[in-house]
Design a protein around this nucleic acid. Sequence first.
DNA 1: TTTTAAGTGATACTAACTATCAGTAATACG
DNA 2: CGTATTACTGATAGTTAGTATCACTTAAAA
Lengths: 153, 153
Amino acid sequence: MTNNDLVAAIEGQGYRLTAPRLRVLESIAGRDTNFTAEEVCADVPGVGRATVFRTLKLLVERGLLCKMILHDGSPRYSFPLTGHHHHLVCVSCGAITEFQESEIEQLLSQLGVSKAGTIVGHRIEVYVVCPTCQVRYGGHAKPELPISAGVSS
Amino acid sequence: MTNNDLVAAIEGQGYRLTAPRLRVLESIAGRDTNFTAEEVCADVPGVGRATVFRTLKLLVERGLLCKMILHDGSPRYSFPLTGHHHHLVCVSCGAITEFQESEIEQLLSQLGVSKAGTIVGHRIEVYVVCPTCQVRYGGHAKPELPISAGVSS
DNA sequence: TTTTAAGTGATACTAACTATCAGTAATACG
DNA sequence: CGTATTACTGATAGTTAGTATCACTTAAAA
Ligand SMILES: [Zn+2]
Ligand SMILES: [Zn+2]
Ligand SMILES: [Zn+2]
Ligand SMILES: [Zn+2]
């Protein structure tokens, strides 16, 4: 995601392109790995924490930034490459791959219809040990990986 | 989930059924709505916060308790009714319905095979407005429901 | 140019934990 | 049975990822 893309998405949408916001956009533009809000904060000294969080939230709401949840529950931000998608996240190094599965989307969309109500959203994260990390650990996932109920394989 | 079920799952597994643990188990046994760790803490005065969290974590790891993530990212605990499953969570009242979709599980399990690595787990939450809340809001979901990228409908 | 609305940053606060650690309780061993 | 070992506990402090408040500043609109 380039700085221009980000700027364009903010401008002319009723949002103001202020100096602090621009600092945040410049900090994150072009990042190709996931990052935390704290990392952004550290990278824009002088810009308030609240503004960093507000800006990230704005981008997530506008669909310009993804917020995903790692296996241990901690959040990470990354730029989307495609439209509606979900993430394969490496539990070891945090590397992200996007995936799109229209069949899954189909199946999910049918779930709520009868009994459960009206679907307003969903969250899917798939946790993996990426090829790089598999090599690093001699072809095995680390044995102590916590796989708990509801987040099971 | 009855107290006996919980006690049985702790006993004889190398874990000790201590008085503080029993207090926690008694507090949560029989609950039929989701709850927070703080609610449990408040219900077992004298038992340390750490012990409450440790006990909940133990139960989650042992598969006796589900930990799900609400639409806003906050965690809730609830008892599982079935085996491997996921949740339909009402964004308005928090009511939970479980679902099992072997087709989705199938599709997910095939995702990692080629490029992404080895799947070690997944997380799926579906956010709904439940029938009760739909009635309460005159047949509409509240318009201000936040539906963000990656958690989209 | 006022007026209004949006945005800012400092500060404080919250939720949901985790780490540390001295002390206690349960179990195992001889 | 006593002692050793290990599990567990609660107090305290610290962490992460934020949100709430609010006086102040900017930017846009009238
Ligand atoms: Zn990796
Ligand atoms: Zn989807
Ligand atoms: Zn509801
Ligand atoms: Zn599943």
